[in-house]
């Protein structure tokens, strides 16, 4: 390593200070929301948004939780995102097996089709989907949202996984084929176990992306007991009954699961964030 050049000390501290101030600005909404979610309305009006809470006032959070039945919203989000993540990974694996390993004819065009589908705005699909789902009696059901997002996420997954499986070591498959393994066996016993790291990254991404979705769930999940967390919070905006501290409690309830997922999946996410960049 080269020797450190002498640096003017004040300069480097100034750079650090500037970057630290920016970090505080970026995270201040999180801090302020958390601070005020634990205050009583009276405390808020006397002390303002920056005073520290005198104790842990939980009524705002509890009231909001009960009023919107937040546990149910969490469960809906969990169920939809989990089902989509699993379904989309399965569908991506099947497609990518045929395209990346099977190299079926016309695969380039099929991949372009998936790529285009992935960039299409949901606005250009929403009304027919809404109409068709009403026709078949799936409107306002979690199943409709699960089906739609399984396909949307799998369009991306197919695109990504096909190029990964295109690099799959041929010798292993040939050895398996000589041993008499059919295509299903080769897929389930060899391709899937070996690609497990990539599949788990995809699984987590699909889960979080689906959790974060707003537009289609807003349209398809109109009844209260089907709503997801972002939809319930987004729709409740501007309700007259919400006071300052309850609003901040509602924001906190939206933040907590998102930050929790980030912390749980942090290592996979930072490894795969460049993967997600293609989306």
């Amino acid at each position: 390593m080269s020797a450190e050049r002498p640096v003017r000390a004040p300069g480097r501290w100034a750079v650090l200070a500037a970057l630290a101030v920016l970090a505080v600005v970026m995270s201040s909404p999180f801090l302020i929301v958390t601070l005020n979610a634990f205050k009583s309305p009276a405390e808020y009006s006397s002390g303002g948004p920056l005073s520290l809470p005198k104790g842990l006032y939980l009524d705002g959070i509890i009231d909001f939780w009960n009023r919107v039945d937040f546990g149910e919203k969490l469960w809906n989000s969990l169920l939809i995102s989990g089902a989509v993540a699993i379904g989309a990974v399965v569908l991506s694996v099947l497609n990518a097996y045929a395209l990346g390993i099977g190299r079926v004819r016309g695969r380039l065009w099929i991949l372009v089709l998936f790529l285009v589908a992935n960039t299409l705005p949901q606005e250009s699909l929403v009304y027919p989907l809404y109409y068709l789902s009403k026709e078949v009696g799936l409107y306002d059901s979690k199943l409709a949202v699960i089906l739609i997002f399984t396909v949307i996420q799998a369009a991306f997954g197919t695109y990504l996984l096909s190029s990964v499986l295109g690099q799959f070591p041929r010798e292993i498959l040939e050895a398996a084929s000589i041993d008499g393994a059919g295509k299903w066996r080769a897929l389930s016993r060899i391709v899937v176990p070996i690609s497990r790291p990539t599949l788990s990254v995809l699984l987590i991404f699909f889960f979080i992306w689906t959790w974060n979705e707003f537009f289609l769930p807003l349209i398809f999940l109109i009844s209260n007991d089907n709503q997801t967390v972002p939809v319930a919070l987004g729709v409740l905006q501007g309700e007259k009954m919400m006071d300052a501290t309850m609003s901040s409690a509602s924001a906190l309830l939206g933040i907590v699961p998102a930050v929790a997922f980030f912390l749980i999946f942090q290592r996979t996410l930072t490894r795969g964030v460049t993967v997600g960049a293609i989306k």
Binding site: L94, Y97, L99, L125, A154, L173, K183
Partner: peptide, 28 residues
């Protein structure tokens, strides 16, 4: 040598093809 010929891989595209048609192509 390939796992029992080439053509059979099409079968794996069927579920994706059906769902993709119903959810994206037809609505678009």
């Amino acid at each position: 040598v390939r796992p029992r010929g080439r053509g059979g891989y099409w079968l794996f595209l069927i579920p994706g093809f059906v769902l993709f048609t119903v959810v994206i192509v037809v609505p678009f």
